[in-house]
């Protein structure tokens, strides 16, 4: 090794030491958060090992014997496997297909409202449901759709027959999607609205000179301008496809709709925490976390290959 190389190395080392010394207060500050992440975020990840052990409460995590992939095999052989995966994916895919595009359309239409104060009022109203709790939203669904709820009152008033929506498996998914739409339409649109206000006015002027009408301006100027934002939101949505809003489903479901409403996480909650099958349900949960994670990576890679923005 030449002496200059060694000098560079030692210089680098002392530079690093300087950085560490100068940053000692910063490390001290970050200490508590780092402990937090180690305990509450990585702790449970470490605890995932019970998916590979036959967990017995009395023996503790480390005393329980290893069983390898037994629980994963048991899950794949379980008749409820396909039902759970299907229900989870259908809810997630429906969310992307029906709910995801709505805020984009809403933002585009809102952008066409001429009065600025009108835009602001509409937008402020549209945020409101985002801040309402999932318990209240589920309560609204269940009371409005009850036999004597307002929806059935209206159906009866126009000569129809009262229908028990909450107990009807066919209605579970639409109720889930529509209530999500009601709650998140305005909030999800914020990011698109902001992207729209950043579009360069000159682009529109140029388009007008080229003879573009309003529709053509939207297609050729506005949409390309917000495409990167849409791409990012899309990756996030795909990455979250399996993490369907667990709380909402838990509150909306009942025994009569389990066929379509039971998703992986509600199953884990019911069989795991209420039923005590810790290891088995941890394996199930881990299966969906890993799937989710892989899908996020794939979606990100695909977006990057297509030349769109990516998360990283």
């Amino acid at each position: 090794m030449s002496s200059t190389e060694m000098k560079i190395r030692s210089a680098r080392r002392s530079q690093l030491r300087d950085k560490l010394i100068r940053g000692r207060w910063l490390y001290l500050m970050a200490l508590l958060p780092i402990i937090y992440f180690l305990v509450f975020k990585f702790g449970p990840i470490y605890g995932l090992q019970i998916a590979f052990r036959n967990f017995r409460v009395r023996r503790g995590i480390w005393g329980s014997e290893w069983v390898g992939l037994e629980y994963f095999q048991q899950y794949l052989a379980d008749p409820s496997f396909w039902v759970l995966v299907r229900n989870t994916i259908v809810l997630g895919l429906g969310q992307i297909a029906f709910v995801f595009p709505c805020p984009i359309v809403f933002a585009l239409l809102l952008n066409e409202v001429q009065s600025k104060s009108g835009q602001r009022i509409i937008q402020n109203i549209s945020y409101l449901p985002h801040f309402i709790s999932v318990v209240v939203v589920a309560s609204m669904c269940s009371t409005f759709l009850a036999r004597d709820g307002i929806i059935n009152q209206m159906i009866v008033a126009v000569g129809g027959e009262a229908h028990l929506f909450m107990q009807d498996p066919g209605w579970f998914r639409p109720i889930y999607w529509l209530s999500n739409l009601w709650q998140e339409l305005g909030w999800s649109a914020i990011i698109y609205v902001a992207a729209l206000t950043n579009v360069d006015e000159q682009l529109y002027e140029a388009a007008v000179i080229d003879g573009a009408n309003r529709w053509q301006q939207t297609v050729h100027v506005t949409l390309p301008a917000i495409k990167p934002t849409i791409a990012i939101m899309f990756i996030m949505a795909v990455g979250n496809i399996m993490s369907v809003s667990f709380e909402k489903v838990l509150l909306l479901q009942n025994e009569l709709t389990y066929d379509v409403s039971d998703i992986i996480s509600t199953f884990v909650y019911r069989k795991g925490l209420s039923g005590g099958q810790y290891s088995y349900t941890t394996a199930i949960d881990m299966f969906s976390t890993v799937t989710n994670f892989v899908m996020l990576l794939v979606a990100n890679r695909v977006c990057r290959m297509l030349g769109e923005s990516s998360l990283w």
Binding site: L16, G23, G43, I45, Y46, Y269, G272, M286
Partner: peptide
């Protein structure tokens, strides 16, 4: 802080926990 050594690593770890969690049962047990 741009001069904080290790920020990239810490940031990556934090973002990782956004997408990969231990899940309900291990968290409950912890």
């Amino acid at each position: 802080r741009p001069d904080f050594y290790g920020r990239k690593l810490l940031m990556r770890c934090a973002v990782f926990t956004m997408f990969f969690t231990g899940g309900m049962i291990p968290t409950y047990m912890l």
